[in-house]
Lab assay of single mutants.
Amino acid sequence: MATKAVCVLKGDGPVQGIINFEQKESNGPVKVWGSIKGLTEGLHGFHVHEFGDNTAGCTSAGPHFNPLSRKHGGPKDEERHVGDLGNVTADKDGVADVSIEDSVISLSGDHCIIGRTLVVHEKADDLGKGGNEESTKTGNAGSRLACGVIGIAQ
C-alpha cells in the first residue's frame, strides 16, 4: 500500500500549488496538507474528481469521485461524495494553506484517490446545502481553477 501521495495543481491562470497526502494505516485517516497560491481571497471548493484525465484541462477530470452514488455534502457529513473535501481558505495575498484530515478518502482500496484528479474551484462549496439540484452534485463551487493528478510519492 502506498502511504504517501502528492498532487501538483496547475491551471490556465495564476492558480498553482502542491498538496501532499499521507496515510499511516490502511483504514486510518489521510492527512492532506500543502499550499495553493494565486486564488482570490475567501473560500474555494476542494474536491477529488473521478478521473485522472487532464487532456482537456480540468474539465476532463469528470464529476466528483463518488463510488457510493451519494449526494454532495461537506467533509463531516454522512451523506457526501468520497471526493468531497470541503473548502480551502485563501488569505488576502491569495494563498491557501491547506491542513485537512479526512477519514473517507484513502490511498488504497475502494476509496483510493491515487490516479484521480484534485481540483480547486472558483467559488465556495455550499456543502450540499444550497437548496438546488446543482448543490447536491457540485456544491455550486463554480469553474475549475486548477487541477492535477494525484500520484504515489516516496
Rank of each mutant, 00 (worst) to 15 (best):
V6H: 08
D77M: 13
N27R: 05
T59K: 03
A5C: 11
A56G: 09
A5H: 04
L39N: 07
C7K: 02
P67M: 05
L118F: 09
V82F: 13
I100F: 14
V15W: 10
V120R: 02
G94T: 09
S26L: 07
V98N: 03
E41S: 10
V88H: 13
V98Y: 15
V95D: 06
P14K: 05
G28E: 09
C7T: 12
N140M: 11
G45C: 00
T40W: 08
I150M: 05
L9P: 05
H44W: 02
S103I: 14
P29M: 15
H111N: 14
E79A: 10
I19V: 12
A141C: 06
N27Y: 10
V149T: 06
D126V: 01
E22D: 10
S26I: 12
N54C: 06
H121R: 00
A90S: 13
P67C: 13
G94K: 11
T89E: 15
T40N: 12
A5Q: 05
N140R: 07
F51S: 02
V82D: 13
P29R: 14
K24V: 12
S60V: 01
L9M: 14
R144E: 00
T40Y: 11
K71N: 14
D77C: 05
N20R: 12
D12R: 12
V149P: 09
K10M: 13
I150W: 02
D97S: 07
N132I: 15
N132Q: 10
I152T: 15
K129R: 11
E101M: 08
Q23M: 05
A90D: 04
S69A: 06
A124Y: 14
I105Y: 05
G57R: 03
L145D: 08
S35V: 13
A141T: 04
G38T: 05
E133Y: 11
E50K: 03
T89K: 13
G45P: 03
K137N: 11
R144S: 01
G128M: 03
K37H: 12
V32M: 14
E41G: 13
D110T: 08
G42V: 07
L85T: 05
G34L: 03
P29F: 14
D97E: 11
E133S: 07
F65V: 03
R80F: 03
G94L: 11
R70K: 12
L107F: 09
G38I: 07
V104S: 09
K4A: 08
N87P: 00
E78G: 13
Q16E: 13
S135L: 03
G86I: 01
L118Q: 07
V104F: 05
G74C: 09
V6G: 06
D125H: 01
V6D: 05
G86F: 00
G86Q: 05
K37F: 06
L118H: 01
E122D: 13
G57D: 05
G115H: 01
P67V: 14
T89W: 06
V119Y: 00
G17F: 08
A56T: 11
D93W: 11
V98D: 04
E25G: 12
T59P: 06
V32Y: 08
G74N: 15
G109T: 12
W33I: 15
H111R: 12
I100G: 11
V104L: 14
G86T: 02
A90N: 11
K71W: 12
V6Q: 07
I113W: 00
V6F: 10
N140H: 07
N87T: 04
G131N: 15
K24N: 01
A61Y: 02
I105N: 03
T136A: 06
G73L: 00
G34E: 04
E78I: 09
V8R: 06
H121W: 01
D91F: 15
V88W: 05
V120S: 05
S99E: 11
G148V: 00
A146S: 07
A56W: 06
H121E: 01
G74D: 15
T59D: 04
R80K: 07
R70Q: 09
K4F: 09
G34Y: 03
S99D: 10
A124T: 14
P14E: 05
L145A: 07
T3A: 00
T89L: 08
G130M: 05
L43C: 15
T138N: 09
S99Q: 04
G131L: 06
T55Q: 06
E134H: 15
L9D: 00
L39H: 04
I36G: 01
V98G: 07
T89C: 05
R116I: 00
A96P: 04
D125I: 00
V32L: 09
L118E: 01
G94E: 11
N87K: 00
L145K: 14
G94F: 10
V30W: 05
I36E: 02
A141E: 01
T89H: 14
F21A: 08
T117W: 01
S99L: 08
D77R: 12
V8K: 10
E22W: 13
A124W: 08
N87F: 00
Q23F: 09
L68S: 10
I114L: 08
E101N: 14
G13Y: 10
R116C: 00
G128C: 07
S106W: 07
G109A: 07
I114Y: 11
S108G: 14
I150P: 03
L118I: 11
K129L: 08
E101K: 12
S60P: 01
S108E: 12
P29G: 15
S103V: 14
E133D: 09
A141N: 01
K137Q: 05
D12L: 07
H72R: 02
L118A: 10
V120W: 00
I100N: 14
P63S: 07
C112S: 13
L107S: 03
L43T: 08
E122Y: 07
P67R: 14
D84Q: 03
F51I: 07
S106V: 13
V8L: 05
S35L: 14
L68N: 15
G83M: 02
E22R: 11
F51Y: 05
A96T: 06
Q16T: 09
W33L: 10
G42W: 08
T55M: 01
V15N: 11
D102H: 05
I113R: 02
A146Q: 03
G139I: 03
N20H: 07
K71H: 06
A96V: 05
K37G: 12
H49R: 01
A124D: 12
R144P: 02
T3E: 08
D125K: 02
P14V: 09
N87A: 05
I114T: 10
A146H: 05
V15G: 13
E101Y: 15
E122T: 07
L9Y: 14
G139C: 01
C112T: 11
N54A: 14
V8T: 08
K123M: 14
E101L: 13
D102N: 13
G13R: 07
V98T: 03
E50C: 15
E101T: 07
K137G: 14
W33R: 12
Q16C: 08
